[in-house]
Simulated assay, not measured.
Amino acid sequence: MEISNSTIVITGGSSGIGLEMCKRFMDKGNIVITCSRSLDKLKKAQQQLPDLIVYQCDIADEKQCNHFVKWIQINYPKVNVLINNAAISSNINFANDDFVLEKLQDEMATNLIAPIRLIKLLYPALIKNNSAKIINITTGLVYVPRVNYTFYNASKAALHSFTQVLREQLKKEKVQIIEVLFPAVDTPWHNGNPPKIAIRVEKAVSEMLKAISQDKLEIRIAKVKLLYLLSRIAPKLAFKKVNSLN
Score class of each variant (00 low, 15 high):
N246T: 05
Q164H: 09
A158D: 00
E20G: 00
V242Q: 03
A184T: 07
N246D: 09
L237W: 11
N75I: 04
K196G: 12
I3G: 04
S89W: 11
N193G: 01
I221F: 02
A132C: 08
E168K: 12
K171T: 06
Q169T: 08
N93E: 13
D186I: 06
S244E: 13
K70Q: 10
K225I: 12
E202H: 12
E218N: 11
Q47D: 06
A154S: 11
F68C: 03
T139F: 03
K41D: 15
A204T: 14
E207P: 00
D27E: 13
N193H: 12
V100W: 04
F151G: 04
C57N: 08
P194F: 05
L181K: 06
I10A: 04
N193V: 07
A198D: 13
L82Q: 02
L159Y: 05
P145R: 05
V79S: 13
L118C: 14
V32I: 15
T7G: 02
F239E: 10
N193R: 07
A86W: 07
E62R: 08
T110S: 09
S231W: 13
G12M: 09
I116A: 06
L52G: 06
M21E: 04
Q214E: 14
N30M: 09
I59F: 14
I88L: 15
G140L: 05
C22G: 03
A198F: 11
S213R: 01
A234Y: 08
D58E: 11
L159I: 15
I177M: 06
R167C: 06
F151W: 14
N243M: 09
F182Y: 14
L226I: 08
D61I: 09
D98Q: 15
I10L: 05
I134F: 00
R220V: 01
V242N: 01
I17E: 01
K133R: 15
I134M: 00
D58V: 10
N93G: 06
V54K: 00
T138W: 03
Q46E: 15
S244H: 12
L209S: 11
C35Q: 07
R220H: 06
A211H: 10
L166I: 08
I31Y: 02
L237I: 15
I33P: 02
A238Q: 13
I197N: 12
S213W: 10
I31L: 13
N80K: 01
A132W: 03
F182I: 02
K241S: 07
L121K: 14
Y76P: 01
E62C: 04
K41N: 15
K63G: 01
K223Y: 14
I33F: 03
N243T: 09
A114C: 10
A198K: 02
L181P: 00
R117S: 10
T110I: 02
D27H: 03
G140W: 02
L112N: 03
D97F: 05
K28S: 13
E2W: 01
Q164K: 07
N96H: 15
S206K: 09
K28L: 15
H67V: 10
M26L: 15
F239S: 13
R37A: 07
F94A: 10
L19A: 02
R167N: 08
Y76A: 01
I221E: 00
N30G: 10
